[in-house]
């Protein structure tokens, strides 16, 4: 073994040799994920925030992504579902390879209301799944499902967004109480919806100044939470609007930080 001077350096060199031999310690990993956000870094690089299937939220650098001749091309654009190889870095990982599994962006961006709804989904996911590298499989599956539904354009984009938002909150542990009073637990349909109480409330528990939505609105929210699209598609426009307002208020209350893109969501 060559002497490199200093115990620490020798030890490091030895560890390095071991790593090359069995390849066990190489900090490369592979995962699939959806691009949530991109931020420019330096001359031609981008920091890409992804929600991956096995690793959870990962922030990684895509080197040279902004160049026209980049080998990543359009693969690391928001809404892309990609198969990735990453190299673990000190603060940020580095994307070494990327392959498209589904490019949801193409169909989403073709319609402005779909685009604004999808952007709100990405921003919400980023705010709900706050801890990096902690698996969040259910959030991942929910996001993939919602992006696919939006791309297929089978339902009103605004309802797809609302369904995604209530279900994301439910996965995070903030499911609204819709079938019983959020305070006393009295079963059945309740007249008021109290955001800070966590759902519908009965007339006895009802705090001052809370909303009294139409019973159809609460039923619509419940259908969206369950994924009952037949009932949701049959709903009226005014109940959809009311439902969107309640879902947005409920989301902002639980997330504390506002979702900026919700302001720009457009109705179809």
């Amino acid at each position: 073994m060559p002497f490199l001077g200093g115990d620490a350096r020798t030890a490091r060199w030895v560890r390095g040799c071991h790593r090359i031999r069995d390849n066990g310690g190489v900090a490369l990993y592979r995962d699939e994920g959806v691009v949530l956000r991109t931020q420019n870094l330096g001359e031609a690089d981008r920091i890409v925030t992804l929600l991956t299937r096995r690793t959870g939220v990962v922030r990684a650098v895509g080197k040279g992504v902004r160049r026209t001749k980049s080998r990543f091309g359009a693969r690391l654009e928001p809404f892309s579902h990609v198969d990735l190889q990453l190299h673990t870095g000190r603060a940020l990982d580095v994307i070494t390879q990327a392959d498209t599994l589904h490019a949801y962006g193409e169909s989403i961006v073709a319609d402005y209301s779909r685009y604004t709804s999808a952007t709100a989904m990405l921003e919400t996911t980023e705010k709900i799944v706050v801890v990096e590298k902690e698996p969040a499989l259910r959030h991942f599956l929910l996001l993939i499902g919602a992006l696919r539904t939006l791309g297929e354009n089978t339902h009103d984009p605004r309802m797809v967004l609302d369904a995604f938002l209530v279900r994301s909150l439910a996965v995070a542990g903030y499911a609204p109480a819709l079938e019983e009073c959020a305070r006393c637990g009295a079963r059945g349909a309740q007249p008021s919806f109290a955001v800070h109480a966590g759902g519908v409330v009965c007339s006895v528990c009802r705090p001052h100044g809370v909303a009294t939505p139409a019973p159809e609105t609460v039923r619509l929210m419940s259908a969206l939470l369950r994924g009952d699209w037949e009932a949701a598609d049959a709903s009226e426009e005014r109940h959809r609007n009311e439902c969107s307002g309640l879902v947005a208020a409920y989301l902002q209350w639980h997330l504390e930080n506002g979702i900026r893109s919700l302001r720009l969501v457009e109705r179809a």
């Binding site: 001749k69 080998r71 091309g73 359009a74 498209t100 962006g105």
Partner: peptide, 16 residues
């Protein structure tokens, strides 16, 4: 496709 590039490296969206 960018002029002077390789077809095999083009991503699906661009190639499409």
């Amino acid at each position: 496709l960018p002029v002077g590039g390789d077809l095999e490296y083009a991503d699906e969206v661009t190639l499409g």
